[in-house]
Design a protein around this nucleic acid. Sequence first.
RNA 1: GGGGCGGUAGUUCAACUGGUUAGAGCACUGGCCUGUCACGCCAGAAGUUGCGGGUUCGAAUCCCGUCCGCCCCGCCA
Length: 603
Amino acid sequence: MTSERTKLDAMGTLRRSHGCGQIDRSCVGEEVVVAGWAHRRRDHGGVIFVDLRDQGGLVQVVFRPETSTEAHERAGDIRSEWVILARGVVEARSAETVNAKMATGEVEVNVHELRVLNSASPPPFPIEEEAGADESVRLKHRIHDLRRPPLQRALAVRDALSRAMRQSLSSQGFMDIETPMLARATPEGARDFLVPSRMHPGSFYALPQSPQIMKQLLMVSGFERYYQIARCFRDEDQRADRQLEFTQVDLEMSFVGVEEVLAVLEKTTRDGCLGAAGVELPEPFPRMSYSEAMDRFGCDRPDTRILLELVDMTDLFSTSGFKAFKGVVDKGGIVKCLPVHDADGISRSEIDRLESFVRKELGARGLGWIRIAEDGEWRSPIVKFLTEEERAAIAERSEARPGSLLFFQADVADKANAILSRLRIDLGEKLGRVDGRDWDVLFVVDFPLFERDDKGQLTYVHQPFVAPLEEDIPLLETNPEAVRGTHYDVVMNGTELGSGSLRNHRADIQRDILRALGYSEEQMQQSFGFMLDALELGAPPHGGFAFGFDRMVMVLAGADSLRDVVAFPKTQRGQDLLLEAPSPVATDQLDELSIRVRLPKPE
RNA sequence: GGGGCGGUAGUUCAACUGGUUAGAGCACUGGCCUGUCACGCCAGAAGUUGCGGGUUCGAAUCCCGUCCGCCCCGCCA
């Protein structure tokens, strides 16, 4: 490489005196020593300019033969990302040469001595605000990508948030306690990452999906306020907001009800957002019930800055002659509408595009729509199936007027809501139907404890340890589906930052719940025996929460993907393209673990 | 597991319906240049068109398979 042809210098005793970004008018006349990476180089033959970059900023250093022949000569070799140390005098730039686009653009460093500390191969993409490169290239060359300002900023937000939340929790009396990374495999929930035990051939540890069980055991142990910034692992498919390994700010507290936990959450969230990004959140946080969120927004983590709302019309179609919708209602489905007023901006071809989008991406059966023209006429493929009375009812409920465009979904509730919720967000953002606030935080409360899966079996909505509301405990035996849980979410800008609940501290209630979920006594003992046993050792009432720390950074840093707020993220297929993990291992290593690999047979 | 979009030089992209030697910007290399700041000018090098197979006189282009990246459903809380 270039380094073979370039003689590199040692630092010697020369040390940095200023960060590049610190150099300003007040330094004029001073001798300074700056160090960093050659961001850009402009060689005019006689005079050479280098924009020198360190973590704190950028400053122009100048090499002139009349200042130092030797430094000027060596500066001719400098290329992008070379590492240099330069001693020189800060000079004010003349009025014509001031660069207003640069924070340090009023000054420059006239270099007397240059030490080339390292050369570098050329970066595969420019180290700029916008990478302008495909994400796989960025991930493969993560070291260069991490030099870019957006990632530098995101990791700084991450650090600040971590510090602010630790400080907040510490001031509220929480104690940081670490829990094991080598834990026990669990049959419930997500797939575990397994770690083979050398000393116990055939047995495995599991990396924790969360410290959930362990923090409950700490409550039983008498640590009344626990917290931890914990790494969690789930071997499930990736999304923009889901990585295989991620970080939770995990906390748990004893002798509290929902209100005390929410108060801690509110303070911790406020302190975190303020400390990490200077964001001031309202006090108290608004609250919304799960059913209201689903009803109005079709989503349990609504971004309430978007002004569009859904309208339920299920009852209107239960007796309708419009068979497509009535049939859905007869089978227990719902019909909901997303009214968009003053929708002239949405063309017919845009509607077609939306329809094909919801069909392809979201599995919709179709997209019903009605446009009310300026002359009041209804233009729609479905209007011919509707009676006068139905039209009047639809118009009244959707507050339709000339210029309105109504979108319909008739399907099982989850799907209809998911589709309209997505349309609401897309159209709301595209049409600018937003209230103008930068930050939108709310608590979503009153989740049900159970739901039916597609086989009709009762399953838990969140996790099996969520405590029911005290007054609903009798319903566990008689009408479990009506039991309300003590679960709550914190939602910010349409992203679920985290969730928590009160937990079952009484073994008998925990057993009742597991029984309702269809566990036999044996299965209960096998899967949750140690937990049930622990609850009989003097478990205090307790509850807690876990923030999705990475998601919180993502929201505060304005990033679209977790990969932009994690230093070394994995791809959607779970690979680290820089370190090339996962990788096969040597047979020796496997032998020691008593493991033989049996690869799936190719077709 | 399923659906969608994409994969051409280091990189970002182009190459009409299959048709000569696959082009351009940036980056890179060499040269020139004393006030640039996305410096400029001149010259140059750079390609297994992701991979494998097929159709064809002829494939970056059409077909099949496969790998990789991203988005989504399932999955995950």
